[in-house]
Design a protein around this nucleic acid. Structure first.
Lengths: 217, 217
DNA sequence: CGCCTTAAAGTGTGATCACATATGTGTGAT
DNA sequence: ATCACACATATGTGATCACACTTTAAGGCG
């Protein structure tokens, strides 16, 4: 009864869960484009497994809202309407400022250094027009912070939002050019952190997300 | 191309999706107790289907956080620690006040009348000590409001929170007696709505959730 | 009577097949 | 050349079986 070796949010290490994690990060980091058709059997052969694990991983992503059904039961990466993308960003702002507030006291000097390193790589990626590197860096920058919140409830919700946000963000970036996303507020974030300004830190996070909202016009 | 008969958040009507919806509402309305073991094959025979749809429905609930793995890969209804239950209520307050704010202008006089009717049934359930009726009424009271927000992003997140919240809330109610939950703020909600007081409406929703937080001490 | 061993039942997972439906592609007739 | 019908392919879904593992129960031995 008391020998609980595994905590609550535990996932056994199976082929399906591995595939699920793999596809999740690929979606968050913009490896897929909105409208892409995701076929269960194609994913299966692509990863060298049978259809069963791929079927489960893909269907889990559908329940998470990362993939959707289109006509005739084909599964594809959703194309977010402008209103819906706006909604996602609005929800991101609400949740992520709160998560950032909870994370702030846990962030160490090592975290600050790593954030600055990631930000440097992000700027290099923007310079080089490497959208994939930008997406990966941006994802890791934010979630290095959010993980420090130690929130087992809000953090999964934020991940769900990124799962929907990733593909469309990549599309916007590639379509409008890397210059459109050049003025992120990551520097404000790290500077507020370095001077211990908690509310300024949260405001910088919110501003970074709001900047994405302004991209829509 | 333009003949898109089904919107984004569409789910085909299959045995698995039906079972999923059924189990979701049962969890939100407290039909299951924390710690209950959910067996795929048992669910299958219970609903007269094969193991396949039950397997998918149950695994979807796991990805949603409504069920968790315990030792030895058994799937069960999670027992929320006090800290985690507090976290869920904190997240509920944050998200549901926001959703309520968006829903407010859409609420009609008919909605108000229905809310008052539901509230009457809730009070009767508390009087009678019928915890199941209380849970069902409380769930429908809140989500009648939230559905009016027309939010396809925040609303699913709120549903995820209730999915985790339901079983533990039922346990608290049955353990501590119905009197402990007697002073909900539903009346404040309907009264604020009837006089067109949007912020008072949101405050009443927040107070209703905070009252649940105070139950934990 | 108690404890250890062993068999049985139950668990989720992976694999494979059958089925209904939708899509695409030829092929044939007009 | 163009349209229509039919076949082939690809899709997700449901069903069934085998497998590895855990828990439980029973049985036998000390």
């Amino acid at each position: 009864m008391e020998q609980q070796t595994q905590g609550e949010g535990f996932s056994p290490d199976t082929a399906a869960t591995r595939l699920h994690r793999e596809l999740r990060t690929r979606l968050c980091e913009g490896d897929f484009a909105p409208g892409d058709v995701i076929s269960i059997r194609r994913i299966a052969t692509e990863y060298g497994t049978s259809a069963m694990p791929a079927r489960e991983a893909v269907r889990w992503l559908v329940t998470e809202g990362a993939l959707v059904f289109s006509d005739s039961r084909k599964i594809r990466v959703p194309e977010l309407s402008r209103e819906r993308f706006q909604e996602v960003l609005f929800a991101r702002k609400s949740l992520e400022t709160e998560v950032s507030r909870q994370a702030f006291p846990w962030l160490t000097a090592e975290d600050l250094a790593e954030l600055e390193g990631i930000d440097a790589r992000i700027n290099a990626a923007i310079e080089a027009g490497d959208m994939q590197a930008y997406m990966r860096g941006n994802h890791r920058f934010h979630f290095l912070i959010y993980r420090r919140s130690h929130s087992r409830v809000l953090l999964p919700l934020v991940e769900l939002l990124w799962l929907q946000y990733g593909p469309s963000m990549r599309q916007i970036g590639t379509r409008w050019g890397a210059s459109s996303i050049a003025d992120d507020h990551h520097r404000d974030v790290t500077q507020a952190l370095s001077r211990g300004d908690r509310e300024g830190f949260c405001r910088a996070i919110a501003a970074d997300i709001e900047q994405g909202m302004r991209l829509l016009e």
